[in-house]
Design a protein around this nucleic acid. Sequence first.
DNA 1: CTATACAACTTGTCCCGACAAGCGGGGCAA
DNA 2: TTGCCCCGCTTGTCGGGACAAGTTGTATAG
Lengths: 259, 259
Amino acid sequence: MSKPLYRQVADTLRAEIAGGVFGPGDDLPSERELRERFDASRNTVRQGLQLLVSEGLLNSSQGRAYQVRSHEVFVLNASKFENLQFSQREDGDSYDNEVLHSGRQPHQEFRVEMVKVTQEIAERLKVTPGEQGVLRFCRRFVDDTPWSTQATHYPKWLVDAHPRLAEPDDIEEGSTRYLADRGLEQIGYHDELMTRMPTPEEASELQIGPGVPVLIWIRTGFSADKPVRCTRTTFRGDLNHITYDLGDLRAHATGGDLH
Amino acid sequence: MSKPLYRQVADTLRAEIAGGVFGPGDDLPSERELRERFDASRNTVRQGLQLLVSEGLLNSSQGRAYQVRSHEVFVLNASKFENLQFSQREDGDSYDNEVLHSGRQPHQEFRVEMVKVTQEIAERLKVTPGEQGVLRFCRRFVDDTPWSTQATHYPKWLVDAHPRLAEPDDIEEGSTRYLADRGLEQIGYHDELMTRMPTPEEASELQIGPGVPVLIWIRTGFSADKPVRCTRTTFRGDLNHITYDLGDLRAHATGGDLH
DNA sequence: CTATACAACTTGTCCCGACAAGCGGGGCAA
DNA sequence: TTGCCCCGCTTGTCGGGACAAGTTGTATAG
């Protein structure tokens, strides 16, 4: 009734990581050394290490020792929705600003396409699946490591009325303000949050290995009478938290990011 | 420059699952059959299957064939915070009601303890770490499968004033209302959302295997001048989504769960 | 001093074998 | 009919070996 050997290896190393024997960024002993220490075959040691990798505790890559992962988390406050297009250059506490404040270097890839909207998007925008729509896509980096991807879809009727949405340039004042200035204010949002392991495509886009889930945030923006956009953001789950402030919190300084 | 064999196995099977060759709940061919099909050793086939397990696509257990996982998702609307203690028997669209509406059978384990509050909780309740506090713990099931665990912490000063919080009984009217009736209305919430792979403890509490992340929801409730409780809910990420409605959505029927 | 090449490490991939442990069906016995 | 055991299937665990491929430091050649 004793635990499997590979599990003992994993449990021991996990405890040592938690106990600080190996800190974030440290190298673990090599497979050969662990093999001698636990008197196990290489396969068994690897099985134990693989378990820790899939728990998100370790990184591994060919030629280099196993490394203890270090988490550095950015917090996105989703209820400050005035400056939702958080990549823009406006002031206020946007996402970029938080990044810059920590001394890191953010940048982004940007792309605009005409696409047929998927089922997922169509039912949120209340249009028929397969209809044309505009996709404004953005992949964000911090110090050259991918952080999140964001895909905003606009329905065809909206793009026809406001064609600048389909142009491949970044919109200076932010697309939310662009629309608001033209009489299409978003008065409410419906947010959905979910998590799962990344698909292989997501894993390569965000450069995440096994053991790191993605956090998906789908925001549908509504005007007075209908949905006007749907933004789907895919975060690396190990690098991002999301917060909401509800009700009356004026009296409290909720600031001070944890961790 | 060809892909590793185990990866070809995984990619092929993943595509077949996505294409509907194997539907949710279906058994995959056995390792022996896959070994013949791909002309690979058992270890290689297992490595490919293991990858799909860690992506959350497959279940495996000793003695039974690999099974395609089926997702059935419950949605929790976190901005309807009047009936936050969503396990209570009140009417309105509580969590239980959604479960019951789908014809499933929910139940829960309940427990009350005096504990020393952890660092994590203490900084949210603005008390000193290690101070005594009351923990009201709840683990929820649907049809006997664990769904989530919830730990609500109350600071000592609050429990001293309202001792029923420390009693091991379920509070009939819900603890939120109990406090509100006694003049301690919660006027705002600060929510934090994050995801990661489960610790071994969480994995066993929620009966989740590799490839399923947890979704963690930490809600700090505020009275007019200070935090009064901190609730940390750990969801199985494959079974739960969280939604928020922000702004003015009266005109829109956001109902109709997706999926 | 610099650049290249090599050597000695690391992990990745793949094969083989063996036995343990769990599940389910068929057949036998009560 | 009902209950039990056994057999044949499944996956889980553990060992061995071999070579490929990536990384890093050192020694050498220019």
